[in-house]
Structure formats: C-alpha cells, structure tokens
Design a protein around this nucleic acid. Structure first.
Lengths: 220, 220
DNA sequence: CGTATATTTGAACAGAATCAAACAGGGTGG
DNA sequence: CCACCCTGTTTGATTCTGTTCAAATATACG
C-alpha cells in the first residue's frame, strides 16, 4: 500500500533510540533520518507514526484540489509531529532540511499512555501546546495585517535563534503559505521592514534584526 | 482572585454527575448550568476546569487589546471545552444560549488519565479531533473566499440540524468573528446565497436550505 | 559563464473593509 | 393594541489592502 517509514526515509542510521537523553519516548521508537524535501507523512495516508523531531525543521502542508496550499506549522527540534490527526493525515509533513526524528508507532504510544501516566501527561501537554499555537496562529491569519503576520514569524524565528543574525530555514513561498498570503506580498513586507530599518536582509535566507523592539511591537 | 465556577455560573442545580449516561468523565465532575451570555471561562484566567458540554452552544473568543475579536470555535453538545489551554486560558468561553455542562477539575483529569487508560485515550481522541477541526478552520480562514466561508458554516449547521430548516444559534457578529470577516460582508453573503436560491432566510436566526448540493459545493 | 530557480518590483485589479444610512424585529410602556 | 425605542441586520458608496499578472533582478548550481 505504501512504503514503510524506513524505506521511504532512505534511512541510513536507524537505531533503537540511541543517543536520546531524557526523552521518555526514546525507548518506544526508532531513530530515522530524512533528507531535505523528504516526506515524513503524506496527506490522506493513514496515521501510523508520531514523530519526535530531534533536529532540523519540518513543515506540515495541506494541498487542496485547486492548488491552494496551506502550511499548518513549522516544527523544530523537540516538537511532536502527527498529534493532530485522526485515522488519516490531513496534512503532509516534509523536511525543510536534513532532519533526524524518533518515530513512534501510534498504537505503541496509545498502549503506553494507557499504562504509564508520564507518557499520557506528555501527550496531553504536547497536544495542548500545539492547540495553543494553532489558536495563536488562527488569530494571526484571521485578524492581522500582512506586515503584522510577517513580523510575527520573523520575531518567532529571531526568538528561536536567540541572536540578531537569523537564518530562515524556509522559502518565501513557505512563509506565504503559512501566513495565508502570496509570495509577492511576503516579499513586499520584507522590503518594507528593511526600508523601516527593522530588519536587514543579509542574504536570501538570512537576516539581521536591527530593531527588535519594533519587530516585537509589529508582531504583537 | 476570581469567583469559583459555581458562583460564577449562578448555578441552580449542581449535582454530582447525575443523569449522565455513558460518559466516563461523569464520575469526576460536577454538573452546572450556565445562562445565555454567561462566561464559562475568561481569557487570561488560569485553567482550572475542563468542561463537557451536555446541552446548548458555547463560543470561545479571543479579544485583542485593539478590539479585534476572533472566535475560535462553536461548541455543541458532547464537545470537550478547555483542552486547548496551558496554564492560562487564551480564549474566553461564553454560553450562546442556556447550557448545561459537566465541569471536571483539570488536576483530577490529569491524575485520572495517568491511572486510567480509557480516560487518557478519551482526552487524546478529543484533543486530536479538536486539532483537526482547527486545521480545517485554518484553511477556511486562510484560503477561502467570503462566500465559501459563509457557505461552510451554514453547511456545517445544516449538517448538525439534519433537516432543511436550520436555526442559527449565533449572531451575525459571531459568524463574522468566527470566519474572520466583517458583519457587513457576512450579511452580504447571506443575501447573495438567498439571491442564488441556495438558502432562504425564514427569520433572522432561521433559514431554510433550498439547494443543499449547491451549498455543499460552495463549502467544499 | 550560462541556465534554471527564487526573489523582488511594478501596474492594474478585485475582494473585502470601512463609513454611513436605512431598515427590520422585539420588547416595553403607555 | 399600538407607538416607540433599542438593538441587530441589511444595503449602498467609497476606500484600501492584498492579489494578480507581468517583468526585471538576484542567486545557486552545474
């Protein structure tokens, strides 16, 4: 029906949770490596695994029949991917760069959660964190202007980077589809932020935050 | 700091889970009644309870400082409310009409989930159902036109009603804030749907679906 | 260096928002 | 029972933000 995760990942170094420190899920999963643009899961496929992202960045995308694309989220190291789905994946998950993940069988996870309170709590916590992020994002998409939306994602990325020099792991098109804008509008907002001396593009996929306060204010 | 649920609910018939059939949560909660426009939870308050909605309709809303309002969801009988939050409620929850709910202390729920696999699974299932709904809604808000969004919510309501004659439990403003539109645009879309003979307004809060297929097509 | 791809910029357009006014509906009190 | 008012809804005219279509420019990669 569809290839196993290991096959699809073209995996090179599968091993049983080796090298994971302090992750209660480590014992139940297999560590896999995905390369840039690999698909971890495909929209409409049955849900088989939940992934703990160990390193790299993953986007979840939904492609409609008419070609309209919506990115649900960008996931970073530590995130749990695949919680949001029922029997079928609503969104695909794709590696933005080389990623390593811990793949845990859903059935295993459920069984374990039923037996072990810590696992149950971990899932609950991860799920409600994800729900909160989605609520926040819904407000952004629904009620914020283009400049505010772009500022918000840049502020988020800057926060993760922890320094002024921030590199953008995703394309403009990804940003556009995440923010429900067009690529042209995103580009214009970048230019505008640069003209206002809020940021400075130091490369296509790299920027410097010149005025963090202004960025934060716009993002709020 | 803030009033207890029972106080705020101005509750008249609290009882320990009486009258609930087949709800595994029944044993752990208290049944409460809220009146139209009562607040079940207030934005920014600490999360204390999770609510199982037994009857009525509840909206969750986030009000920004600048007055922009986003409705996160409308909840109907059977829904679990308050899953999405961490320590603090991001959204308020308000009764659209008289509602009865089962309030379960969050701490109780967590403890119970850690002990009882069925409860853990129930929470997991409810959470992922909610995540899926939000993803769907995000696509609507982000990538659909005004007419499609309005058609979508009307199709949803019609589906719940299970018949042509559907009454709308929420105001136009609520619909607008749910769909991230203005009240004027919502009103215009209603008129347009009526002009196209897809629906017919039989009252301000009541409509008849004349062409279910067309409505479905628009909503898709 | 040249080619394919990604990004930026420009001009015209469209859809929804805003501002403003008219129009119900639903209660209330006379 | 009717006139009135308050609120919620509809409609109209205009504006504005973001989209679309098109072209130019930059970047990465062979």
């Amino acid at each position: 029906m569809h290839l196993s995760v290991v096959d699809r990942a073209n995996n090179v170094g599968a091993s049983h949770g080796a090298g994971l420190t302090n992750d209660p899920l480590a014992a139940f999963g297999v560590q896999l490596v995905f390369r840039r643009n690999d698909e971890l899961v495909r929209q409409e496929d049955p849900t088989e695994f939940v992934y703990r992202l160990l390193s790299g960045v993953v986007r979840t995308t939904r492609l409609a029949d008419d070609g309209r694309r919506q990115i649900g989220a960008f996931h970073y190291a530590g995130d749990l991917i695949g919680l949001e789905d029922g029997d079928i994946h609503l969104f695909s998950a794709e590696a933005l760069c080389d990623c390593s993940v811990l793949a845990v069988r859903r059935t295993t996870l459920e069984a374990e959660a039923a037996r072990n309170g810590d696992i149950a709590r971990l899932l609950w916590t991860a799920g409600s964190k994800r729900l909160r992020e989605m609520q926040q994002h819904m407000v952004h998409i629904g009620r914020k202007s283009a400049i505010e939306r772009v500022a918000a994602i840049l502020a988020d990325l800057a926060g993760r980077a922890g320094r002024d020099e921030v590199d953008l792991p995703m394309s403009r098109q990804d940003i556009a589809d995440y923010l429900s804008l067009t690529i042209e509008t995103v580009s214009r907002m970048f230019s505008q932020l640069q003209a206002r001396n809020v940021i400075s593009l130091t490369g296509l996929r790299c920027m410097r935050v010149c005025n963090p306060a202004a960025l934060q204010r716009l993002a709020a």
